[in-house]
Amino acid sequence: MTVLTALLALAALAALTAVTVLVGVLWRRRQGTAVAVSPASAPTAIDPALFGASADRFGSRATLVQFSTAFCSGCPATRRVLGELSARTEGVEHLEVDVGERADLVRRFAILQTPTTLILDRHGVVRTRIGGVVRRSVVEERLEALR
C-alpha cells in the first residue's frame, strides 16, 4: 500500500461523507413541510370508503389522513400531534391508514415515505400534503386556511 493510494482512499471516504451529510441536511429540512395541492390537479373528492372508513369519520371542516406502516419510526409522533389537533379543533378529524397491506393506496398517492399526511377539505378534496413527521405549527396554519 503506497501513501498515495491511502490518501486517495481517505479522500474518497471524505467525499462520500460530505455528500451523505448534504443529503441528510436537505432531507431533514424538507421533513414536515407542507406542499399545497392545487384543486385543479386533484379535484376529485375522496370517498371515506377508500380508507375503509364510514362517512362520519371525515371532518366537517377538515380531515387529517395519516398514512403509516409498521416499519415507521416517525408515525407515533405524528399520530400524537394529529390526534391532539383533531381532539381540540372543532370539525377536524384524524384518520390513520396502515398502507402496509394497501399497495393500491401507496401507488395512487405515490407514497414514498411514512408518515405521509394529507389534509382534506370539507368536501374530501386533497389540499395539502406533508411528508415525514408533521410539525404542529405547519398543520395548524394549513387548517386555518380551511375555515
Partner: peptide
C-alpha cells in the same frame, strides 16, 4: 451515517418501494 446522524432510515423507505411493486 444517515441513520445515526439524521435519523433517516433508507431501509424503511425501501419497504415502501417494494410495496409499490407488489
Amino acid at each position: 451515517l444517515l441513520n445515526s446522524a439524521f435519523g433517516y432510515c433508507i431501509g424503511c423507505q425501501l419497504y415502501l418501494v417494494l410495496l409499490r411493486l407488489r
